[in-house]
């Protein structure tokens, strides 16, 4: 078929599929939050000492960091899902979480001293964390890839990494309710590694499923 002929049939097709990226994204958030609340509420459980002040402060810090990753990831994901919106200028909002984490680490080292930093970094449930954060991220990641499928990402792998960061942020926010290791060093190492895993998974998933 000649290109001229193809154009004739394209011109006769007046149906425009409007991608509803923002709508899909909000649906994705809703589904993820409901599913993860059920998993944490029924299966995994909230940490037993959540009532104490120290635990509340530590959990709040973790939540602020993970939620900022989730929100920044989602914001950039919405831009990456559209062809002309893929400007790298806004990526710096992803640094909000790590910046707060650095402040937390500095505060931790100042308060408790450098001595024993290795044991605080390794913590007591590191592997548990490395297993559960990716597991909890599966549903949000699937939802984020669905958002990319709805749109038209022109850099699928980069968009997949961003989807992974957003999903890991959501997953880690829920895991933080269960996690009893409070040191920012622990959060940086184990949560960070888990996020890297989910980011890589997101890149692969996006390459496979979000092509158009």
């Amino acid at each position: 078929m000649k290109t001229r002929d193809l154009i004739r049939s394209l011109a006769n097709d007046a149906i425009v599929d409007a991608p509803r990226v923002a709508l899909t994204a909000s649906a994705a958030w809703t589904v993820s939050v409901v599913v993860l609340s059920l998993i944490v509420g029924i299966g995994l459980g909230v940490r037993p000492d959540i009532g104490t002040a120290a635990a509340q402060h530590a959990t709040a810090l973790k939540l602020v960091i993970t939620l900022s990753a989730a929100l920044a990831g989602t914001t950039i994901l919405l831009r990456e899902a559209e062809p002309s919106g893929a400007s790298r200028t806004y990526y710096f909002i992803l640094l909000a979480g790590p910046a707060m984490l650095c402040l937390g680490i500095a505060f931790d080292l100042w308060n408790l001293g450098v001595f024993g930093w290795q044991s605080r970094l390794i913590g007591s449930h590191g592997l548990h964390c490395l297993l559960y954060i990716p597991a909890l991220s599966i549903v949000p990641l699937a939802a984020c890839i669905l958002v990319l499928r709805t749109g038209a990402p022109t850099r699928p792998r980069m968009a997949g990494v961003i989807a992974g960061v957003a999903a890991a942020g959501i997953g880690a926010s829920f895991y933080a309710l269960n996690c009893t290791d409070d040191s920012p060093l622990f959060v940086a190492f184990w949560y960070g590694s888990a996020t890297v895993f989910v980011g890589v998974a997101g890149a692969i998933a996006s390459h496979v499923f979000a092509r158009w």
């Binding site: 290109t3 394209l10 599929d17 991608p19 062809p83 002309s84 158009w212």
Partner: peptide, 25 residues
Amino acid sequence: TLLAVHLKRGSWNPELPFAPWVNAI
């Protein structure tokens, strides 16, 4: 490419210039 432009044209925001969008696609 023309097919892709055609099927994805709903993702262009008519308030923005066309060129960046079509070039990305």
